[in-house]
Amino acid sequence: MLTVRELCMRFGGVMALNRVGFDVAAGSVTALIGPNGAGKTTVFNCITGFYKASSGQIRLRGQTGEIDLIAILGEPLHVGDAWQPGKLAHKIYYKMFGGAHLATRAGVVRTFQNVRLFKEMTAMENLLVAQRHRVDWRPLSGLVQSRRFRRAEAAAVERGWYWLDFFGLGEDGNRLAGELPYGRQRRLEMARAMCVEPRLLCLDEPAAGLNPRETRELSGLIRQLRDRHGVTVCLIEHDMGLVMEISDHVVVLDHGQVIATGTPREVGEDPLVLEAYLGISGEEAA
């Protein structure tokens, strides 16, 4: 479903990613692991459109064909483009209107390492903001409360309740997001991402800061998302227990390079990985 090839990212003189390449198969749970500073979040930022990769390819395959996730961020213009008006027009369009939101609209939705909720809004409002494709945006129909507007709004609210219940937040719909306890904020963020109806859900350290019981619940939820809702999941995680338990496929990064890929078992036995990763945080994995 997602293909990453030769992805490079430079910050000044630092090579944060060096020719990273991996695939995410549809309907799988893929884990991105590696020691701190290996470039995992940078990969995420490139996939979800927050960073413009220095070079490389990121392609998302879906029902409507392939989408180039790099082109929609706006590529630099070259003199040569002047000869190809079509291509130039495309580039200019994406330069003006492109950005991370287009990656989301293509079906890639993410959560953040340090939870980013709309704190002064209620949990339900957080979910409604996410359903931009479902509600009626036209100002006039909202002002006169047209039938279509109310119907769209009701459908969005109902959808919101569904996901709140799914993540065990049924009681919190009208509470301010910023006032929820931390574990619930994390789940609310996932609920919000699900309201966008992603094809590829990218979770950045979903278990960080959760206690063991909450982590177990989380792994159950992620599995349900994949099995019942057909969502492909890509996650960054330090909790090796969780990674080994739920992932079908593991990609190991170190110093901006992919050093191993495979099933959790294969990766766990790879000597390179043991040296680079498990050697450092062996007690964490145990």
Binding site: F11, G12, T41, N45, F50, Y51, F112
Partner: peptide
């Protein structure tokens, strides 16, 4: 100046 990199 150097271009700002957004912290995500």
């Amino acid at each position: 100046g150097v271009p700002e990199v957004e912290k995500v």
